[in-house]
Design a protein around this nucleic acid. Sequence first.
DNA 1: CAAATTCATGGGACCGTTAACATGCGAGCG
DNA 2: CGCTCGCATGTTAACGGTCCCATGAATTTG
Lengths: 349, 349
Amino acid sequence: MAKTDERVKPSRRPTIRDVSQLAGVSRMTVSRVISDPDLVLPATRQKVASAIADLGYVPDRAAGSLASRKTGFIALMLPTLTNANFAAVAHGLTEVLREANYQLLIAYTEYDMAEEERQLRNLLARRPEAIVLTGATHSKAASKLLLSADVPILEIADLPNHPIGHVIGFSNQEVGRTAARYLINKGFTRIGAVGATVEGEVLDHRGEERMRGFEDELRYAGLSTDAVVRHGKAPLSYDHGAAAIGVLLDKAPDCEAVFAVSDLSAVGVLMECQRRGISVPDHLSVIGFGDFEIGRIINPPLTTIHVDFNGLGQRTGKTIVELLKRGVSSETGRVDVGLSIIERKSVKA
Amino acid sequence: MAKTDERVKPSRRPTIRDVSQLAGVSRMTVSRVISDPDLVLPATRQKVASAIADLGYVPDRAAGSLASRKTGFIALMLPTLTNANFAAVAHGLTEVLREANYQLLIAYTEYDMAEEERQLRNLLARRPEAIVLTGATHSKAASKLLLSADVPILEIADLPNHPIGHVIGFSNQEVGRTAARYLINKGFTRIGAVGATVEGEVLDHRGEERMRGFEDELRYAGLSTDAVVRHGKAPLSYDHGAAAIGVLLDKAPDCEAVFAVSDLSAVGVLMECQRRGISVPDHLSVIGFGDFEIGRIINPPLTTIHVDFNGLGQRTGKTIVELLKRGVSSETGRVDVGLSIIERKSVKA
DNA sequence: CAAATTCATGGGACCGTTAACATGCGAGCG
DNA sequence: CGCTCGCATGTTAACGGTCCCATGAATTTG
């Protein structure tokens, strides 16, 4: 073995300094090759590139972030990841941000308000360049933290009355109203709904808003809201739907049509009906919300209210990129992505 | 308005220096209050705490990371987030890491190998303290990058033959074999399977391994593998199952039992059978993999092979924490979390 | 009671990168 | 031909924390 060099090479990770020495240029030139190669002469660029490859150099973004005051992080707060709609949002968001070289920092609160502030602090300590929130009710402290972060804040998947930042979403109340109108127009009069109870410090109020919108519209049409059932607690699930429809039918056996605040529950309703020999849609019509994949494949296929969550995520991503690149967004501060009814077979014609 | 101070307070974020000045202590003391309060006298701690609150100070982890050489990041590479099992892994992992104050950095590759290295570089630039990979086939370059990162590497949800780090997973081949043995023991002889084709640079080979294990066991029992159908491409979906069972039945109309490499496909199979009037399990038995929630609720409930993905994530998290705190793990380098058959009604007794 | 030890706090260097400005050189121009 | 300009590259000083060691006071010890 050769005698070790006087300046023994430590087995630590190579830094930009090591690269610059090997390539015979300054650190700054290496930095430029990485972040904006056009500023560097092709010949130099080449030398640097091969030095990088030889050393297996990987830049340290923490150091870079500190110096440039740009972290490349975008924070996303969700109630949960184990929900196809939220996952779709995250997905669409990533697609767009990936290209612009931002890294998503995901935090989820499990619908727990106490967790929110803690998560938020952690996120903020990473100095995200923008913060995306899903329709959450923010605590006083959380709002203060958010505002003082001094970065764009985007509230998505909702249309809050008193937003603290940009809004890209849809009205959950309108979802409920739309479902009610749809069923009313079909001629049903004994109409019910299944949702979750609201108790304690629930972070996500979106389901409840859909319920309220639904009830409002029933009342507006002079119909009874007795068959609007709140059962169990969020997050909603297939089991929730199966259990809730049982409660509903006990209460209102003559119910003709039911709105489930989530397709998850709607599927549960459908399956429970199969088991009980209640024919859908002949005996009971069902409409859900969320347009989950499963709704398309079950029998009968589920009529549902669709929101383009993936597109919502993409649009949010684009807005962020605009905001950060140009300081402004082509979107106004409040965007309603709307919703649509997907008519399938679970509602009687 | 009062005349502005000579040293006008800029509206920039407060730093540890601002806090230290307001509290009348050194920066180091502030740092200690944040990272290890016990080192500081209660009275001092109190002063600092209120200075922090007054200023709304939030530490900058990028700066901290640089100085301490600890980022608090754990990297997780997944094929996709829009799969309940992977989401469950991420979920379990987060639960554990949250407590230990680590932040998960999630990257997903959409089953695309070309994307892998790019993602990996991005991740590595964030200096994660550990890297978690889901059974992926690593490119040469990717492996080199991984190794030179010099942090614990955990390969999960698989049992690779030539692991490059710790392994916490289960054998996908064994899943296939178990499914085959189960059906064979039930007395079936005309047995099929549905999975995805393998073509091009597919990152996730886990489904294919289940197919292989299944075929192996059929052969071992002297049965035909003619009804083992590879159709479409990953990621699997309900539609995949619906389409694939059509192909299978065309090929082998007398098939008695079928294994779907994913519950997603299995549910698709069940629904397509409903539509075609093929009674499950009387005419066709179905077994899936993954124990997705939907399998429990559909009719008939789906017999499936269960792996505790959430627990897998938790276990991975615990191992990481041990590794990082104590430098060793109580687990050996290779852990098989095993699997179990959940018998429901989709296989004839 | 002096010496040793512990404890709370402070001082300064340093982590790896980039912003901002400086420099040197050749091309273009009147 | 001297001057200006533009371009490629270099120099220096941060960025906001934490590590390591020093310091001085309080406490224990022989």
